[in-house]
């Protein structure tokens, strides 16, 4: 991966100047590259990674396995893209294995997820079955541990 893209993936809040200093680039080069990636959709967006336990959020997250009937010509794409368009759907992947789509849904309550599955997802033509799993606890997300390892285990000066 490009070193700038790699660094943005780790920390997208660095200023253009800070990015440039770390990568031996000029600020103008960084700006031009980022602008190009934003324009061509390489960079889709920037987000903070938040621990919901700290925000006391009452929302629920579910992983839904969906089995689909593929269509002539388009395979799974048309249906998958339709599922992905729902606001509740945060992630939607086509999978190998025993089911086809892995759909991560966030909603305000169990009932909202249930209603989404019963009324929106299952009723789509081509959806054969769904299995809904509710998230209980997050240990790691997007590479971040919920309980990071403690800092400061090194001596301040070592040989």
């Amino acid at each position: 991966m490009d070193a700038l893209l790699d660094l943005l993936t780790k920390d997208s809040r660095l200023s253009v100047e800070d990015l440039a200093a770390r990568l031996n680039l000029t600020a103008a080069e960084v700006q031009a590259k980022v602008a190009a990636w934003e324009a061509d959709g390489t960079i889709l967006g920037y987000q903070a990674v938040i621990d919901p336990e700290k925000t006391h959020s009452s929302g629920v997250t579910a992983l839904i396995e969906v089995r689909l009937t593929p269509e002539r010509g388009g395979g799974f794409d048309r249906l998958a893209e339709r599922v992905a368009k729902f606001d509740q759907v945060k992630t939607c992947w086509l999978m190998s294995g025993g089911f086809d789509l892995a759909v991560v849904v966030e909603a305000g309550s169990l009932q909202e997820v249930a209603r989404f599955v019963a009324e929106k997802l299952s009723t789509l033509g081509g959806v054969l079955s769904t299995v809904t799993h509710f998230q209980l606890k997050i240990y790691k997300q997007n590479g971040f541990l919920s309980t990071p390892a403690p800092d400061g285990l090194r001596l301040p000066i070592t040989p």
């Binding site: 390892a149 285990l153 090194r154 001596l155 301040p156 000066i157 070592t158 040989p159």
Partner: peptide, 13 residues
Amino acid sequence: DVISLGVGEPDFA
């Protein structure tokens, strides 16, 4: 409370 650039080992575990 010092920021140490005096170490001779990786900061990574």
